[in-house]
Every structure is written in C-alpha cells, then in structure tokens.
Design a binder for these strands. Structure first.
Lengths: 214, 214
DNA sequence: GGTTAAGCGGACCGTCGGTCCGCATGGATA
DNA sequence: TATCCATGCGGACCGACGGTCCGCTTAACC
C-alpha cells in the first residue's frame, strides 16, 4: 500500500488466486502438502508469479496468516475494550490471548507450516514482533516485577501449530485456548476478571494497575 | 541395547564417526549446513550407512541430542537430589530446568535443527515425551491446582533453539536459563521470602482438565 | 576355510524452493 | 484509437535435498 504505483489488475487477481489456492491445499492436506509448484498449478499461475508476489514460501504463508489475523490486529490497536485500549492491562492481556487462541485453533496447520518455513527468522518476522511488543507491554504493566520480554516470548511459544494439534482433542476444539488462559492466570497471579461466570473472588495482592494503557 | 544381536565392529565405528562428523558440521555452520550428504562425506562413509544407522535426518539429530542429554537423564532418574528423587518437587523442578537450560544453551543450533527436522512429530519423540512426563509429574505435585500437562508443554515450549539464540546476548550466555528459572518461579508462585513457607493461597478454581494429551 | 547374515556405499530418484529471461499485456498518454 | 513500456507473467531450468535400492564386502561364528 502507498506504493508509488498502484497494483496492476492482473497482479491483484493473481494474488487472491494464489492465496485461495494455498488455503485449499492447506485444508485438504498437511502443511508439507503445500508446495509452491502445487499452489501455482492450482491457482492457474506460473511459479515465478508466486515468488514475484510473495518472495518465498515463508512469505506466502505469512501473508495468509496475516490475512487471518487482520481483524485481531485492528481490534487490538484501535478497537473497543477489552481488546483495544482502555481496559486494564490484565484484562486486555487475557482478551488478546483469547483472540490469538481462536485464530491459532482454527489455523494450526497453517501455523505449523509457517513455523517450518520461517525456521530461524521467526523471531524477526514483523508479525511476531508486533504480537510480542503488544504482549510484553501488557505484561510489563500488569506485573512489573516480571521479565516482560521473556514472559511474552514464553506465552507466544505456546502458540505452536504442532503443539496445538497435539493437545486438541477432536471433541473439544477450544481446549487449547482455555489452557492458555489458565496458564496466563497462573502467571499473572489469578486475581479476578476471569470470564464473567465466576468472577466472585477478587484478590488484590499484587496491585493491579489502574486502567491506563500504552 | 538388549538387541538380539550385538552390533558389529565396523557398524559401531561408523556410528561414532557419523556422530562426530555431525557435530563438527553443526559447529562450523548453521543447522541447515548439516545435510546427510555432507555428514556422510565428512565421516568417510556412504550415505546409505547413515540412513541404516539413524533412519532419517531427524533420527540422526535426535541421537546426537540424546547423547548430549544422557547425563541429565540419568541424574534425573537415579541421581542424588535435588535433580534425582528425594528432594521436594519444587526444588527438583527448578534443578531440572536449570539442567535442561544448560544443555539447551550449549546446543541451541542442534536444537533448532532438530525441531526443523522433526516438524510435526516433535511431540511424539520419545525424548520429548520423557521430559514432558517428568516435568508434568513435578508440576502436578508442586501445584496440584494447575493443568500440569499443559504447563509442562508450556515450559518446554520455551526451549526452542531459535528463541534461545534470539534472547541470548553474546556477553551473557547464561541469561536464558536465568529467565527460565524466573518464569518457573512466577508460575509456581515464588516462595521468595521463606522457603517452605509460601504466602500464597491455594485456590481451587477448577483448572483440572483431564491429564491426558492426545 | 567356509558360510551367511549384517553391513556397506554411492548411483539413483522424485521433489523441493528459488532463479532467470524472453514474451505478453495492462493501462497511462497523446 | 494507436503507441509505448514498465510491470508482470510463466515455465524451463538449477542445485541441493532426503530417502531408497541393490550388488558387493566383510565381520563373526562354525
């Protein structure tokens, strides 16, 4: 966006064709089933086109992932509380993890494929950096005595495609997100502000900072 | 071990040659620098031999990793406290994480290469299963109200080769292990002030999922 | 020395991610 | 509508990879 030149019509058409082909392949086979050759063939496009558009296999998967998490990103930066600014850090953090959990549960295979493709560069990926920045700011605010940066890495480390598949039984597809939430609660010291149902206990041991964001 | 047949002399010799070649390549280049062809060539051995011995690239790296963590495994199962049986769960857990941290810090590249090679099967790897079993038993004992299985996965998730390299500055090679320890302390509730005395609650918010993963 | 199963090696295979470059075309301009 | 060229296209091509196969060698036991 904001490029000097606008994207040409055929280019735009091809981009969505490639993206759609990728998700179809992802859905019908494992992550390693998605090779560039296959994607290109299914999209009815040359291989070179895929690389011109996305740079690499990792870039392609990244783009798809970004598309799937765009809503969350917007909600986090500019939406209403508790995801967006305005809510206490602790609540924002839990809400964010819930949101990320939903996405991750629905895209475990994509996630795994992306991790595989990124290999070492995963932590330099702008998308990862942004989640990490957000999370670690919230951790720093909610629990200043912790090493926020590392805790944020640790929380994100759990969003591993293969792990999600490993701990998700077919009959309980939301279990992963619940587990993440209870992990976060244990880390933050489970005060209040869980889900609405059992918010009866309230604990003020570690001062929860007043609502103030950023 | 305990095979019907003993290992033939040349086979044994070749096995160590391959292992040594692998670690030399690992040391002198990145994880992707270790291809089977190169390993075989450096070991002065045919490619087929490597596969006969180790089954796959993942198996080869696994074997090397196992060799590097053999001491820890023995210390954990049969050694003196606090690593071995006898110490309180909390202390054993911290000692174990320290031990694993040391290994991981010294083998981040190997670790990363192994993760890359294992891809999806990582969580079925016997070595992973064993660490996970140990950790989750300790967590269950130290903090019965937590979902021990998932917490154990979360703690292990942090031992990611690429992450370790990412958070380890050259001038402080032990930083990762310290971070892990403080993470664990936060999770277990840091009995910071007193030792056996732990000022925290014991809340029984139902966090107990079935202790079973798929 | 003879026998035989275990081990060996490297040619071979299919596939992959990625590059390259001659050709087609969208779309702004006149 | 005719011209023009940057942008984009496609698929042949490349080197490298993990893994297999099979005819030959050899260690170890009688």
């Amino acid at each position: 966006m904001a490029d000097g030149r606008a994207e040409r019509g055929d280019a735009a058409r091809n981009r969505v064709a490639v993206l759609r082909a990728t998700e179809r392949l992802l859905a019908q086979g494992g992550g390693d089933h998605v090779s560039i050759d296959r994607v290109a063939a299914l999209a009815g496009v040359g291989k070179g086109t895929v690389f011109r558009r996305f740079g690499s296999r990792a870039g392609l998967l990244q783009a798809l992932l970004e598309e799937r998490s765009k809503d969350l990103r917007e909600a986090v930066t500019g939406g209403p509380p508790p995801l967006g600014p305005g809510a206490p850090a602790r609540e924002r953090l839990l809400a964010f993890l819930d949101g990320l959990g939903s996405i991750a549960e629905g895209n475990a295979i994509l996630l795994a494929a992306h991790e595989q493709a990124c290999a070492e560069d995963k932590y330099d990926d702008p998308s990862y950096r942004s989640w990490h920045g957000h999370l670690s700011a919230l951790v720093a605010e909610a629990r200043p005595e912790l090493d926020a940066g590392f805790v944020a890495h640790a929380l994100l480390a759990v969003f591993d495609g293969a792990l999600i598949r490993h701990v998700t039984p077919p009959e309980d597809p939301r279990r992963f997100t619940r587990s993440v939430r209870s992990l976060a609660l244990a880390l933050l010291g489970d005060g209040a502000a869980g889900n609405g149902e059992d918010g009866r206990h309230l604990r003020a041991e570690v001062a929860a900072h007043a609502p103030e964001d950023r």
